[in-house]
Amino acid sequence: MENQSNNHTFEFYGEGLPGVDLSELRGRLIVIEGPDGVGRSTQVAMLKAWLESNGHAVLDTGMTRSALAGKGIKQAKAGITLGPISLTLFYATDFADRLENEMIPALRAGFIVLTDRYIYSLIARSIVRGLEPSWIKACYGLALKPDAVFYLRSNVGGLIPRVLSSPLGFDYWESGMDIHLGDDLFDSFSEYQTRMLSVFDSMIDEYGFEVIDATQPIDVIYRNLQRRIGRLLRELY
């Protein structure tokens, strides 16, 4: 088999997906995680261009973009019509659709899949909304374990400039307004993101996150990610 000097085999976190032969997956799965406004998508865009210039085929993907459920989730959020359990499961549907129909085919074809968020953001959102962590994690037992998870770690103060660089300002959902954590968007945002950060931090050891200090300048973060991903690809290929 080409490009497989090491015996690299994917695993699922739990029960996994029916009908997937893991030994066929030749690509690599790299996750960029972190809170809203930390600069994930900027890094993903730069890393994609860099990896492609080095001859790697890259699939970049993100949340709520699935052909199946992406539209429905956007509508649900616009109308705020779903409860926390339903929304958790709708997100899981979107994730499963993207995993089965985008990521796994790309991995089969030997791509590097570079994903802006993965199950960890989804798990964190649900935990902050009071759902049982063991249940959510069991739901996501369908997910593949990535080759690396880079956690862009920041503090609430560090998230605000990027949020305010959008003409829309504080977002209803990114501020956790659905769970009423403050009187206005700023108070709610601060409390919600504080809780999100603490859940992310609690997952570092459990899921083996590589922590990147995201309070640094963009180019410093980028070079850090480049170095780590470069090492990872050299080890694996």
């Binding site: 029916p18 009908g19 199946l68 926390p84 339903s86 499961l89 549907t93 659709d97 089965e100």
Partner: peptide, 22 residues
Amino acid sequence: QMLTPTTFSLLHTTDLADRIER
């Protein structure tokens, strides 16, 4: 016809969760 067993299952779960919560 884009549903897999897993997404089919999750959609039904989402629906029942919505029914239960609502």
